[in-house]
Design a protein around this nucleic acid. Structure first.
Lengths: 149, 149
DNA sequence: GGTGAAAACCCCGTCTG
DNA sequence: CAGACGGGGTTTTCACC
């Protein structure tokens, strides 16, 4: 992991379609050298995966909400159950287990408020372990990235 | 936008490296047909971009925090200034302008609590428009994706 | 890490249902 | 109009230096 690797990572974290050829011009290595580094970065898990970012608006998921969830009982089994449920819920983009007021913070995308209401019915009310939750409706997705460099 | 497109999107949103050949087997179209659809999905903005997801842990960004920010004055100019600042701050992965208690919700990744403290000094205290903010430290990144299908 | 050849993949015509 | 085939060009891959 040297400076060249960091340069490559900075570029591909916002555009994974850059060819080894294009990268080689920026970084100053031959295309095969770039490929070797990319392979290593993938194998070692520095690059976790490469994904297509879809437009929520163009796919009818106009509504983004942020939810803070407080659980009723906070023991290992209940925590794991809740985590597993969130991982399997397609409406839940992100789920964080946090310190502070809430136990979990969720970032969700849904078609409309009705779909969100149905989600809360299914996951927060019916025989669940959720004590209370507060909902914030997103008016502007000011910045949405996974960049870390 | 038919069912075939949706199938393609579902696959590439979690793995953008799938070749047209591999996709053709799943979807039941010829590789050129897949490519034509992919091109259209990119051109129309349904696929916004393709990115490499990096491991925060392996790059020394061990700490994720979620911050709720309340502004002092909430007029157009102050809002736009705050949004622009967040977009340009590399520590801020995501920034949402929301209804509810907080004006903004941030998802941030930092090296350690010291870097976060410095960030708050620079962006929240020094001559800023921030009234107050509450910090939640992430103990488990249960689910972090941008999947919407 | 660089070089060069082979393989795989992508993209563009054209054709067909 | 959307999909299937076939070419040529690009990109990736791999052996070797």
């Amino acid at each position: 992991m040297d400076d060249k690797d960091l340069q490559i990572l900075k570029l591909v974290q916002s555009n994974a379609r850059l060819t080894a050829d294009a990268l080689s011009l920026e970084v100053g290595l031959s295309p095969p050298a770039i490929q070797k580094r990319l392979r290593k970065l993938r194998d070692t898990g520095v690059i976790e995966n490469e994904i297509a970012v879809l437009s929520p608006a163009k796919l009818g998921r106009e509504l983004t909400v942020i939810v803070q969830v407080v659980l009723e009982r906070e023991n290992r089994m209940y925590l794991d159950t809740f985590k597993r449920t969130m991982r399997n819920a397609p409406q839940v983009q992100q789920c964080y287990y946090t310190t502070g007021e809430a136990d979990f913070v969720l970032v969700m995308t849904v078609k409309n408020i009705k779909e969100y209401e149905e989600f809360t019915q299914e996951y927060f009310f019916d025989q669940s372990n959720v004590s209370r939750f507060t909902t914030s409706v997103v008016m502007d997705r000011v910045k949405v990235s996974l960049d870390i460099l």
